[in-house]
């Protein structure tokens, strides 16, 4: 109470803005809005030494995509442009006309969807050591897009929502058992089977 005579002077806060600006500029400069996006893939486990050969797959069930060192594509024995790859892959996976040279079907009992015709498709991708990474990613992307478009069609036909929406619902915090089941069911009808051949140097 003795101090009452000398009143406490308030600290001048005028420079507060300057200090804050300084910090702000620092964080602005160091920040990297680096959200990582990418194509998620799973590599096959390493080959064991005396591993038996996998059972043979019928030719009609395999969609062969070859990419050479000049970034050209050979799909099922024919030269194809990258922009036509998606449509070709879709036709192969779904085989809408049940053609003889396209994959066979097996009837499977899938939860939520009941009996469905599931194609025995496999996509085999082989690239040369000289293929550019850009083309490789484009091919991977187009094949994934083919699967996703088919899944989309099925999802909107069966559940009335796009596959993307289904996936988002399943990822959300409030995901229910049903959301997960739905995504799983769609994936079971169109399983993504992209097999990459063991690397080979086929002329570069």
């Amino acid at each position: 109470m003795a101090r009452k005579k000398r009143e406490l002077t308030e600290i001048n806060a005028g420079s507060m803005a300057d200090i804050a600006f300084l910090l702000l500029v620092f964080f602005l400069v160091t920040t990297t809005m680096d959200t990582s996006w990418g194509l998620a893939r799973k590599l096959p486990p390493p080959l064991l030494e005396n591993q038996p050969d996998p059972p043979p797959i019928k030719d009609r069930n395999v969609f062969v995509v070859l990419a050479n060192a000049n970034d050209q594509l050979l799909v099922e024995g024919e030269i194809l442009e990258i922009r036509d790859l998606r449509a070709a892959a879709k036709e192969f996976i779904a085989n809408p006309q049940r053609k003889d040279n396209l994959p066979e079907f097996k009837e499977e009992d899938i939860p939520l969807l009941g009996k469905m015709q599931v194609s025995k498709q496999v996509i085999s991708l082989q690239n040369d050591n000289g293929t550019s990474y850009k083309l490789y990613i484009q091919v991977q992307n187009e094949l994934a897009a083919a699967y996703n478009e088919l899944r989309d069609e099925l999802a909107s036909q069966k559940f009335g929502v796009s596959y993307e929406q289904l996936e988002e619902a399943a990822k959300a915090e409030a995901a229910t058992e049903l959301d997960n089941e739905r995504v799983k069911a769609i994936r079971e009808v169109y399983p993504q089977r992209i097999s990459e051949a063991e690397p080979k140097d086929i002329g570069s």
């Binding site: 990418g38 194509l39 096959p44």
Partner: peptide, 13 residues
């Protein structure tokens, strides 16, 4: 990566 069983990969794009 396969040899050390690091099988989950992501091609950054």
């Amino acid at each position: 990566l396969r040899k050390v069983q690091a099988l989950k990969i992501n091609y950054s794009t």
